[in-house]
Amino acid sequence: MLHIALYQPEIPPNTGNIIRLCANTGAQLHLIHPLGFDMEVKALRRAGLDYHEWAQVIEHQNFDEFLSNTQFGAIHALTTKATDYHHQTTFRQGDCLLFGPETRGLPDEVLRSKVVNNIRIPMKPGSRSLNLSNTVAIVLYHALGELGFAGLE
């Protein structure tokens, strides 16, 4: 199983879409507080909360709690500040893909963590970033493909 971690997500429809993505791929979702919304927000429900019963969602009060309460093969942080690309990384079962908040990305203290491997998606020079739920889908499906889409048909 692969894990998706959203660090302080801000936009309910993105998180809802990612819940739906996790439900359909078997990835486990970790939400690292504080969240920029209430989990009962109508926009979140519309975008994917009706899939919540089929997705594994674990909430963590902060990044330190997330690190101390989980064990992953590796944590791959997606950031426009990275020099290595996602397709240059080897993914393994049990790895975690970590994504930052939509408006500001992951903070430097997270990116400098010894447990984090920083990677990026190729984009045109000068581009800011892709939509969070699109980014999660791109990297998750790449990692799943490397693992032979185990458990999916």
Rank of each mutant, 00 (worst) to 15 (best):
T103L: 09
Q8K: 14
G100L: 11
N17F: 01
K42Q: 14
Y85K: 07
R104P: 07
T25C: 07
Y51S: 04
H30A: 09
E102V: 10
T25F: 07
M1K: 10
L140W: 05
E53I: 10
A77F: 12
S127T: 15
Y7K: 06
V115P: 01
A5W: 00
K42N: 13
L132Y: 01
Y7E: 02
G36H: 13
P34M: 04
I75K: 00
E109F: 14
L31F: 13
S129I: 09
A43E: 15
E153K: 12
A55Y: 02
F37E: 08
I32S: 10
V116S: 00
F149R: 03
L132E: 01
P34L: 03
N134I: 12
L44V: 12
F72N: 10
R104I: 06
S113R: 14
R45P: 01
L130G: 11
Y85S: 07
D108E: 14
Q88R: 10
A74T: 11
F72L: 06
H30L: 06
G36M: 15
W54R: 05
D64Y: 06
R128G: 10
R104Q: 15
N62T: 05
P12G: 02
Q71A: 10
R46Y: 08
Q71G: 03
M123L: 12
Y51C: 05
C96M: 02
L132A: 02
K81P: 02
K124V: 14
D64H: 12
T135W: 00
R45K: 14
F66L: 09
G126E: 15
D108N: 12
N17M: 03
L49D: 03
I138K: 09
I32D: 11
C22T: 02
G26S: 07
D38Y: 02
F63K: 10
T80Y: 02
P122M: 14
I58S: 04
L49H: 00
L67S: 02
G145Q: 06
D108Y: 07
D84M: 08
L97Q: 03
V41N: 13
A27H: 00
A74W: 04
N69F: 09
P125D: 15
P101T: 08
R20L: 01
I138H: 07
A77G: 15
C22K: 00
